[in-house]
Nucleic acid binder design. Structure first.
Lengths: 120, 120
DNA sequence: TTGTAAAGGATCATAAGTGATGCGTAATGC
DNA sequence: GCATTACGCATCACTTATGATCCTTTACAA
């Protein structure tokens, strides 16, 4: 309950660091060493350390660690089913969309809020 | 709504594929092209395609896409605070643990089979 | 049906993550 | 205090992801 950053505004680096710390807290609360957790997850201790330290790793390694910590159910909860957001499903025709279609007029049409950013 | 795999037993590859598909569904439900989403996320379209196709990408790229889709709050919900699991916090002395300590005897001690370590 | 562009796939040079190893430090148990 | 060892850090060879660019297919709106 110390490093509770604001995930809504934090940078990807900050988020990854927060995720790493949280995972580390969980690991420690269960008194599992990086070595053992790494072995269970199928990654190296180096990768475990990198995750703990907030450095980015591959999504695959991340998922493996989540699995090793028995947190896969949380991974499932990570992504909401589009169906539960009716407002997003308003399809022009109502059919299942397989491709996005845009009247390449103005990029700001589908309003991402307001940021016209590009590379940060 | 169709590919609802069991995150508890699925392989990391299957999980990543599921995550990719789900993210793609969300993207399409909002009628956003891979190109535009990639641009917003700060990654290349190649990476976006790989994610959609279920191939692994870096955790950093993944988080960026989540941010672009305004799903960071779900990322926060991804990791439970250890404090909410009292059973996991039973520290030998009660202090804050900074390192795991194990009587490197048998790895099966802390039971990953069914984690009945602390007798709940 | 037709025009358009969204998306998949392949390639390639570059960037980045991975695992193994060694080492110094410090947390923790005794 | 003392022994143990978890952990952070650095390096290095290897593997993999990334981004740019190409081409091809096809969803979809007009």
């Amino acid at each position: 309950m110390k490093h509770n950053i604001d995930f809504s505004t934090a940078s990807s680096e900050a988020i990854i660091e927060a995720l790493g710390k949280r995972l580390d807290e969980i690991r420690l609360s269960r008194n599992i060493s990086q070595f053992d957790l790494a072995r269970e997850a199928g990654v190296s201790r180096s990768t475990m350390t990198r995750l703990s330290c907030g450095r980015t790793i591959s999504l695959d390694s991340f998922v493996r660690v989540m699995q090793a910590l028995r947190l896969t159910d949380h991974l499932a909860a990570l992504l909401p089913d589009p169906a539960v957001r009716p407002v997003d499903r308003v399809r022009i025709g109502g059919a299942e969309r397989r491709r996005a279609r845009k009247r390449r007029a103005e990029p700001s049409e589908w309003a991402w809020g307001d940021e016209g950013e590009n590379g940060a």
